[in-house]
């Protein structure tokens, strides 16, 4: 009789334990995560009025950096920030109004075309859209 009770205890404990170890991940899973939204093809690159004219910022576009530029005329432009030469991250040079790669002085105009330096190809330009307060950047298709 004692042995039987032990087995029943073991059985009950085993079932309870297994259920808990499976319930724990499930409960954690259904709880809202920290980053509560899926990041999709268009990325929020910034807010309007965040950039003064003739300044820029680097933002994360998928797994690579992008560059958002507010031109002197106040037009928003976005490109990939990955230089086509050796994949350095480019910056914006307000003085000459060109995109500039600090690694080997590659320069691009505000259409992404190479002006000077070693980059073999132009920078890919992205679409910029303003939705409410947000600046949305997406790939051109």
């Amino acid at each position: 009789m004692k042995r039987r009770r032990f087995i029943d205890f073991l059985l009950g404990g085993g079932i309870a334990g297994t259920i808990i170890t499976f319930l724990y991940p499930v409960l954690k899973y259904i709880w809202p995560p920290k980053q509560s939204e899926v990041i999709v093809k268009s990325v929020v690159a910034g807010k309007i009025n965040e950039l003064a004219p003739n300044t820029y910022k680097i933002f994360k576009f998928g797994s690579s950096p992008g560059i958002l530029i507010n031109t002197k005329e106040g037009e928003l432009k976005a490109f990939t920030a990955v230089c086509t030469h050796l994949s350095c991250t480019v910056t914006y040079d307000g003085d000459t109004e060109t995109i500039f790669c600090p690694c080997h002085n590659g320069r691009f105009d505000l259409k992404g075309n190479v002006i000077s330096g070693p980059p073999p190809r132009p920078l890919e330009a992205y679409n910029v859209e303003i939705v409410g307060e947000k600046i949305l950047v997406s790939k051109r298709t």
Partner: peptide
């Protein structure tokens, strides 16, 4: 988890034998 599963499996085996 595997420990619990293992315990449960042993318990089941014993129960079935019994």
């Amino acid at each position: 988890t595997l420990i619990f599963i293992f315990i449960l499996a042993i318990a089941l085996l014993l129960k079935i034998r019994q």
